[in-house]
Design a protein around this nucleic acid. Structure first.
Lengths: 239, 239
DNA sequence: CAGTGGTCTAGACCACGGG
DNA sequence: CCGTGGTCTAGACCACTGG
């Protein structure tokens, strides 16, 4: 076996935590140090190892807790829904509109939205939660001509999809999607409420209208990897 | 700005490292401690922060070095090639067959290979390197009936694709593919030469024959995230 | 062999969360 | 307020890599 003490402790704790329900408390650093007869540093290392394995989540001032991780499958066949996915995993979803602004379309997004740079668009920032834990931070762009009063409407209805269908008389479908895993820029880290650099999922996508094919929305979703396991499935068309 | 010292040091180093070529040496912990007038622990934390950002790679006994990260794009349109991708990034690829065994098909793979559990298959384990750094560990499964003497042939030719085309008179194409990001089991960590738990890419795929559609091969590729940035692109069929 | 990063101790102070 | 995790010091030993 490994000779390092903190890995042995981590191994031991991992088996003990196996059946515990998400959110339940894990022993604190001083408790573990005393229990295993090591210094606080070794106990701390063990808990950090469990955090790297995504088995626990640590919150300064509060403690260490058993983590819950949700599967999120992206594929051609199924159109994704945050609420449905989270609920299917037995957790409670929530989303919150942080801001809606009318801005000029940044040049780097012009091609994706198929609109000239500088044309008026809505920029929507939203947070998504699992069991009141912030898991996803999104930035979404909707041309003003698609839904002129989107900013007002979003105060009443939180669902962009709904607003587009009603106000924009549109039928949005996902036309393109790119998934990667990034070390996010500082702004996103702040948005996600993360201190040190943690890699997170980045899902970029473009929605078009099912009928006339015009671009309705482009979005970037940054998701904490300790909260969600993203799975992408590709299938070739069967000839 | 942040008040923590090690983050300031990390920030400073990050800008200094920006233009440096991959593989070049970074100051050691004691050097940094002296330079910034901090203890070794703080200097160490700064380097670990850079490691989390995938900017450097640390090797016990050797030192800390500027990291190189390669993009690997998976999409419908382009069939992937390890060698081509690595070379396109300006690095040198290498692969090595670790073992080829005749084994009975494990039950959990029966469905994927469309063969009964227990039927004879070849299990091939291979390593893939970027600039002589181990980046990917793969486990591949080929039914014996597809290429009976695969084990012998692989000693001469390292390319499974080539062997299948020649010996199996087959035309392999990727039929299905699933990408996720996992904390790998201990066996894979050992295969990748990683100590503590580091999350890695997992790409599962199934290859079929372009003509008759039979399953030729199933594979699992585990790839270090600090070496490769996997990007998956999904496009809807344009109606 | 010297120098590197990895582990560990014993101690200290701080920022934060929740009662 | 107390207890939590986060940072930091000064020191020690070890495992490993390279010349």
């Amino acid at each position: 076996m490994t000779s390092t003490r903190y890995l042995k402790i981590a191994e031991r704790l991992a088996t003990e935590l196996a059946g515990r329900p998400p959110g339940s408390r894990v022993a604190s650093e001083p408790e573990l140090a005393e229990r295993f007869g090591v210094g606080r540093a070794a106990a701390r290392s063990a808990l950090q190892e469990l955090e790297r394995r995504l088995l626990v989540r640590r919150v300064q001032g509060a403690g260490t807790f058993v983590n819950r991780r949700i599967d999120y499958v992206i594929s051609h066949s199924r159109p994704p829904s945050w609420h449905a996915t989270v609920e299917a995993a037995g957790a409670t979803p929530r989303s919150q509109v942080k801001s809606v602004q009318r801005v000029e379309l940044p040049a780097e997004l012009a091609e994706r939205l198929e609109r000239p740079a500088g044309s008026p668009v809505h920029r929507i920032v939203r947070n998504f939660y699992i069991d009141d834990l912030l898991a996803t931070w999104t930035e979404e762009w909707v041309p003003v001509d698609v839904a002129p009063d989107l900013d007002l409407a979003l105060h009443a209805v939180e669902s962009i999809d709904l607003v587009l269908r009603q106000m924009g008389r549109a039928h949005p479908v996902r036309a393109w999607c790119r998934v990667s895993f990034e070390v996010p820029p500082a702004e996103v880290l702040r948005g996600l409420g993360v201190e040190a650099s943690v890699p997170v999922w980045l899902v970029d996508s473009v929605n078009r209208d099912a009928e006339d094919g015009r671009v309705l929305m482009s979005s970037s979703a940054w998701t904490r990897a300790d909260a969600v396991r993203v799975v992408v499935e590709l299938q070739e068309e069967t000839k």
